[in-house]
Amino acid sequence: MLPDNHTMTLEAFADTIVPGEKRSPDDRAIAGAAAGDGAVVAGAVALLLTPAAGVAEGLESLMNMLDNHAREYARERGVELDGSVPPFVSLPFEDRTNLVARLVAPGHPEKDGWVALALFSNMAFDTGAHMPTHEAIAAGHPGLTAMKFANPDADGLWRFPAYSYRRQLSALHPHTTPSGSPE
């Protein structure tokens, strides 16, 4: 478990990677920059906290660092921070995006940590890797649903009996060898 302020900061970070709709009108962590649910509702925090991911221990210090970066950024850009929420959460979406872009850019000394957070945030949306995939699909997982990830068969396995146009769609390379390889 993370303290509430860090959960908010982490949610705001994940929402910067895959943005989504606010859960309620007074949602501060999610900026509401995109239609449909994003990484947060897809389970980013749960995924980052699973022992399997191996990053949970570092999250508190990363969130402190992120809020410090947000304070600095706000000073530099003259952005007014609202003291009722953590500094990163207080940044408008565009500024969150600019700041994260800096942190994950090649050459940033802390890049590894921020990239790891970004990868898991992405993964939460694109795969829902904190829960069994068939459960995620049954529960209408936002990412898998948005991607129109197909449903499995009744036994939980995927099979696509229709898979081919079943016709030659190009000439073969003239120097193809009898084994089917290039010459």
Partner: peptide, 22 residues
């Protein structure tokens, strides 16, 4: 060609359209 997936078929067709073999 009966084994070729839709994605493979699409790529082959695109190659053909661009004057290539596949």
């Amino acid at each position: 060609w009966n084994d070729v997936s839709y994605a493979g078929g699409l790529f082959a067709a695109a190659c053909n359209h661009a004057g290539r073999t596949a």
